[in-house]
């Protein structure tokens, strides 16, 4: 019945570091799926996210370069000040288009393009955050038949973002961080 998952997309804002620290290091060696992650970071900083998580994770972690082909079992972070998009040929593109909801990278932009590229084979995860980014993107994922996972706003550092996603996609599954970590290893 359910389509076999081919990729995971994830979005987080305020409180992202702690939330991702529960989820990403739990992914086991030999993990099959690529994981594309947008975290809202200030545009003027050289991002340290990829380095930081490479030290903690058991699978490769990279900051995306334009047109990088997606490899299995790799975590990809959007670079600061660029949108990250998935092409239908399963390559990664960057864009300098206007911020969306004041955000670049934008979770909506990643999720919507990934929904186009992967359809029902996509798992989308919205974590803690203080704005509405990701809700529209998650709707696109659900419309394409993909799976929607939202961090339970009750336990979130900043509940606004998961709350907005749930309001837009009532069918999304609410989970705690540790439940999300366990779920992703099973998909």
């Amino acid at each position: 019945m359910a389509v076999r998952a081919e990729a995971i997309v994830m979005g987080a804002s305020a409180g992202a570091l702690e939330a991702l620290s529960t989820i990403l290091p739990a992914l086991p060696e030999g993990f099959r799926l690529p994981v594309m992650v947008v975290v809202h970071v200030p545009p003027d900083k050289r991002s340290v996210l990829a380095e930081l998580f490479q030290a903690k994770c058991r699978i490769p972690v990279r900051e995306v370069e334009d047109k990088e082909p997606i490899a299995a079992g790799t975590i990809y972070f959007a670079p600061p000040d660029y949108h990250l998009l998935v092409e239908t040929d399963k390559g990664l593109s960057l864009s300098s288009d206007e911020p969306v909801l004041f955000s670049r990278p934008s979770i909506d932009v990643l999720f919507e393009s990934a929904a186009d590229a992967y359809g029902a084979a996509l798992v989308a995860v919205i974590l803690t955050g203080a704005n509405q980014d990701g809700a529209k993107g998650m709707l696109a994922v659900v419309d394409a038949g993909g799976r929607a996972i939202v961090q339970d706003p009750d336990g979130a550092f900043a509940p606004a973002m998961p709350q907005a996603a749930i309001e837009m996609c009532p069918a999304a599954r609410r989970m705690s961080l540790s439940a999300i970590a366990a779920y992703l290893q099973e998909v």
Partner: peptide, 9 residues
């Protein structure tokens, strides 16, 4: 052009 961006635009 990279289709994902062009489609958005």
């Amino acid at each position: 052009y990279a289709m994902a961006s062009i489609k958005r635009r």
